[in-house]
Write a protein that binds this DNA or RNA. Structure first.
Length: 346
DNA sequence: AACGGGAACGACACCGCAGA
DNA sequence: TCTGCGGTGTCGTTCCCGTT
């Protein structure tokens, strides 16, 4: 099993949205990759630029960021040839590692656009090294730039950033300094190719949480009506849990819920609705066993959402009643927004 | 049954930061 | 300039429920 540390550079329409080709917002113009063995030792490298077929001029931003000119690209081979060699070079037992979550999506978009067979696994699991970095050194959510991470780990900045192979080398150095074993289980899922049917849906149990990726539904309503999509099963014991707080929206795309496992305690659910590439929506749900105080936080979040709205309403008519309206709002909760059973919280 | 006010919903804009 | 992600803020719509 090898690690393929990959970095791509791409270009976009020099005329902005006006000149954008459907199915190809970004055209890959360079591939850099390093193959590592299990001990993080370099086995082989791959480094090649690609002749653009769609956007034959560089976008000003691309020019600004990347250190390359169009003449260099014109001499290169075309995408279909380079990518064929690249996958041959990869072999067939590997896991991709990238800095950030976009490279594999864009790679697959380019494959689809040029009608090249996609040889990568489905579901496509990979390591997002930027995320692993955050899990190890920060809060697990922050997204540091590659340069920041390099500086943080005191890696010598002896080559410029923003060339595919050079950025790959920096990513490799970061991986070599990381305690990869500590975060090994935190694989990421690429959402370009989604499950077609129920049997293909993705369910991964990590140490501290579980993740589910649904198939594509025609509408948001159909997604939210699907049993599997909205269920809250304990990932420790498999028991279908009763919700203490039903799914409630925290913004246009995110919902939270709170369930309770008699054996393992409170479990928080977070559900995100995402747009699929070919239309429709799919669900990414994470379930996490949490402490009682975190469970209270979910309850607070729900109350906070309603309070915020009340305040924004109350501020407009400028009515100065001595007693704020929301203090007496203990009863008029909508039936579907009410707690299903009384919470032993606070 | 019709009305109206307030709570809740939900679609959308926008932000900030990452990637190119 | 464009995409992705996680988040906040705004505002029109929908729903509930008490009043008539």
């Amino acid at each position: 099993m090898h690690y393929i540390v990959l970095d791509l550079e791409w270009n976009q329409s020099p005329r902005g949205k006006a000149g954008k080709r459907t199915g190809m917002p970004f055209e890959i113009i360079e591939i850099g990759a390093v193959k590592l063995d299990g001990e993080m030792r370099t086995v082989e490298v791959f480094n090649e630029v690609i002749k653009p077929a769609v956007y034959r001029q560089l976008h000003y931003k691309t020019k600004e960021i990347l250190h390359m000119d169009i003449q260099e690209l014109e001499k290169a081979r075309k995408f279909q040839d380079v990518i064929g060699d690249f996958f041959k070079w990869c072999g067939d037992d590997y896991i991709m590692c990238t800095w950030g979550s976009m490279d594999l999506t864009e790679l697959q978009r380019n494959l689809a656009f040029f009608k090249v067979e996609n040889p990568m696994g489905k579901p496509l699991l990979y390591y997002d090294v930027q995320k692993l970095f955050s899990l190890l050194y920060e809060d697990g959510k922050s997204r540091r730039s590659l340069k920041d991470a390099v500086e943080y780990l005191e890696i010598e900045e002896d080559i410029p950033f923003h060339r595919a192979f050079d950025d790959t080398l920096y990513t490799v150095k970061i991986m070599q300094r990381m305690d990869l074993d500590a975060v090994r289980k935190y694989v990421s899922v690429d959402y370009f190719r989604l499950p077609d049917k129920k049997e293909e849906e993705i369910y991964i149990v990590f140490g501290r949480y579980a993740k589910y990726v649904s198939r594509v539904f025609a509408t948001r309503e159909k997604a939210m009506a699907d049993k599997g999509a909205v269920s809250t099963k304990c990932y420790r014991c498999g028991k279908a849990l009763r919700k203490r707080i039903r799914w409630f929206p925290v913004n246009a795309k995110t919902y939270l819920c709170l369930a309770y496992c008699p054996e393992h305690g409170y479990m928080k659910g977070k559900l995100r609705l995402k747009k699929a590439e070919a239309g429709g929506v799919f669900v990414v749900k994470t379930l996490k066993l949490i402490s009682e105080s975190d469970a209270e936080a979910v309850q607070m979040k729900k109350l906070e959402m309603s309070k915020k709205r009340k305040e924004s309403k109350a501020s407009s008519p400028a009515s100065d009643s001595p007693e704020p309206q929301f203090l007496k709002a203990s009863s008029p909760l909508r039936a579907d927004a009410q707690l299903q059973s009384s919470l032993p919280l606070k």
